[in-house]
């Protein structure tokens, strides 16, 4: 695969390097220093930073505004966009807005249902779904046209991503679903957090058999546990999450003061094992409110220094 956009993330993976991304959740307020502090922790150890879009349906500073802050800091953002809150007019408008700041990566998502957030009485939009949003960005970029058909002056140049959850049900359609996302236009995939490595390997094997890993960069998602409590919470309370019993046990069997360290060990071991897996093109490290540990994870996993590309 060769790079089609100015995205640094795309160029790195197109050159055959493992890509590394992390994420930055915008604050529940308007203080830009919060964003800058989080982003500085990630400087130099990741290729691009995902900015979440009102994650868990809780109101935060907008993803686009936060991406602009990162861009102005000389860092590369991945604009996350959910289809929950905006119709096709607003989505296309924000894509142009992002493109006007030369934001070169977008991740297309449907978004958590609003009943999980702080405004459960709100309406949801879902004019498009996540695949249709990916298709829309590709049409805007590749054909230089809006969904309505009119021409775009200076079309967006965006590397188009989508999420995949190899662990959600029903498992049998997980790979066909990935195929659909790629057909819709997804060029990179960031997966749900991986704890069940065997199941993930089976998913990748099936994706490889269908030739999907030749058409799309799969970035394996990882999240370090801070504690045994977090492992149990993720296992029992987070929809679509697959945390095997032995992983929870490993955390629970560790003395409390050593649990954070053990969580990082599991994360690093996961990356090291998956680095060798054919079809994995990179890693998406989601250290939730624990961004300061990302440099350590990246270093211990042998992913430093990050490659330079033109």
């Amino acid at each position: 695969m060769s790079a089609k956009t100015p995205s640094k993330l795309e160029k790195i993976m197109a050159a055959g390097h493992l890509g590394v991304t992390s994420e930055c959740g915008p604050p529940r307020g308007s203080d830009p220093e919060v964003i800058k502090e989080k982003a500085e922790l990630l400087r130099g150890c990741v290729d691009a930073i995902n900015v979440t879009d009102n994650q868990t349906s809780v109101v935060r500073t907008s993803s686009l505004a936060t991406c602009i802050h990162l861009k102005m800091m000389g860092m590369e953002p991945v604009l996350q966009m959910v289809t929950r809150d905006r119709n096709r007019i607003a989505l296309q408008s924000d894509i142009l807005g992002a493109a006007s700041f030369d934001i070169h990566n977008v991740l297309c998502l449907s978004g958590d249902h609003q009943s999980f957030g702080d405004h459960p009485q709100g309406q949801n939009v879902h004019d498009l779904d996540s695949m249709q949003l990916a298709w829309t960005v590709r049409k805007m970029r590749d054909e230089g046209r809006f969904l309505g058909g009119d021409e775009i002056k200076r079309p967006p140049q965006m590397f188009v991503g989508a999420a995949a959850n190899p662990f959600a049900d029903p498992f049998e359609i997980r790979v066909p679903r990935l195929a659909k996302k790629i057909e819709a236009g997804a060029e990179f995939i960031q997966t749900q957090c991986i704890y069940n490595i065997d199941k993930f390997e089976e998913w990748i094997r099936q994706a490889r058999d269908r030739g999907l890993t030749e058409k799309c960069y799969i970035m394996a998602g990882v999240t370090p546990f801070k504690s045994a409590g977090m492992a149990k919470y993720m296992k029992n309370r987070v929809p679509g999450m697959d945390v095997p019993d032995e992983v929870v046990k490993r955390m629970s069997d560790t003395p409390k003061e050593k649990q954070a360290e053990e969580g990082l060990n599991i994360c690093v071991e996961t990356i090291q094992r998956l680095k060798e897996l054919e079809g994995v093109s990179g890693f998406h490290i989601m250290a939730i409110e624990w961004e300061k540990k990302v440099p350590e994870i990246v270093e211990r996993a042998g992913l430093l220094p990050r490659p330079e590309v033109e």
Partner: peptide, 19 residues
């Protein structure tokens, strides 16, 4: 719940909806 045309979303679990 999200009126997805290309579902299911990642929240589908044991045949049930995440909400």
């Amino acid at each position: 719940a999200k009126r997805l045309f290309n579902g299911p979303c990642g929240g589908s679990s044991d045949g049930k909806c995440e909400i």
